[in-house]
Design a protein around this nucleic acid. Structure first.
Lengths: 209, 209
DNA sequence: TACAACAAACCGACCAGTCGGTATAAATTC
DNA sequence: GAATTTATACCGACTGGTCGGTTTGTTGTA
């Protein structure tokens, strides 16, 4: 156990360094030397564990998915009996974790995919999987809420779940542009209000077209 | 006229090149040589017009604001008499321009600010100004619509205008992650539905809290 | 003794930025 | 109004340093 922990320590240290450094500086501006310095490992160790910088980025996106997956799986909002309360609880949880410095609450996948979507397909796909995989978990609760409340709509649970991720990603951009989480929190509140309206407004609204 | 056009040609060519190359590759991954190659100018010309790469990025963000400002000012949705129709027309216009390759419809400011918010304050501020400046134009129509429809709410016109920008920025990230504009279009539709609900739902909804 | 896990010197390509110079034309001088 | 100065736009070779990645060697351990 101690042995195993020591064995993989350099790899994990590099991965953890990647999460914070790339969220701070972006992928392209982050050099392998930066990562090695922050992780306190040598370049030899880096290229022993990752065959290229791109390979590290893919692994970092997967590491990110695992970490955030654990964080949200352990979050308290799952205990609500009403699936709509779980969805709203998820948003409240997202708003609550807008604490500390910007790199601490922004999304690695959203940051990296902006820089790599055209030039590094492997990274793009890993980021896309991270985002859509997370959305899929929310989709379950949304689908249950739709059934529970008898919602028949021209939007799907999947599209609303992805919309929540769009709002969050956009909220992070506003936070970065303004230097603080205030606008991000407001955007999440707008999203929350939208979902409440969707589930409480007497169904048919054809005039939206 | 011809003379003046020739005089500023190198600067404009570099700026135009920056818009497309940076939206494709990101800021950090774009070298000055890349820009010079695409703009078909020499490095000497580049550093004659811009004192640094950072300086170019700031100028590019301003150039972006001017170009998009002109595009939206000339868009047809302004002709609606009802301010709510102008707001919804704006969103329909945003959805309609999701055409062609990704770099053609994504946002330079949103892309650049992600990479530079921590390390290049001057670029961050120029991007922030571009985004908030654009939001301010929509805010006017939203405020008029609120007055026209007698909306009294716990959200402001400014916060809803910024929320539209968050949704759009997030929609671009989903588009980049998935390689196409489909999810972005769906997110804009969700935003449109939200605004319709805000302006058509019998006011008080305290249960949102 | 064999192999994973490192360490560190090293490499060529590429990076942002510099510098001495040229071309052109407007402004100034005589 | 011809000659000269000044300003602007532009050119492209060059520099010091950084980049991702390689190579060679050492250590710990089973």
């Amino acid at each position: 156990m101690v042995k195993a922990a020591k064995k993989i320590s350099a790899r994990i240290k590099i991965l953890d360094a990647a999460l914070s450094v790339i969220r701070t500086q972006g992928y392209a501006a982050t050099s392998v030397d930066d990562l090695c310095f922050v992780a306190a490992v040598t370049k030899g160790a880096f290229f022993h564990h990752f065959k290229s910088k791109e390979d590290l980025a893919v692994a970092a996106a997967q590491h990110w998915s695992e970490l955030t997956g654990g964080l949200f799986a352990a979050a308290p909002y799952h205990s609500h009996a009403d699936p709509l309360d779980r969805v709203l609880g998820y948003l409240d949880f997202r708003a609550a974790i807008l604490q500390g410095a910007l790199p601490a609450f922004t999304c690695l996948a959203g940051t990296m995919v902006q820089e790599t979507y055209d030039s590094h397909p492997a990274i793009r796909d890993a980021c896309a999987l991270s985002i859509t995989g997370h959305a899929a978990k929310i989709e379950t609760d949304i689908a249950e809420a739709m059934e529970h409340y008898g919602i028949v709509a021209d939007w799907s649970a999947a599209s609303l779940a992805l919309h929540t991720q769009a709002v969050l990603q956009g909220a992070f951009i506003l936070a970065k542009a303004t230097g603080g989480p205030e606008l991000a929190a407001q955007s999440i509140q707008h999203l929350r209000r939208y979902i409440v309206l969707l589930f409480t407004t007497p169904s048919k609204l054809e005039e939206i077209s």
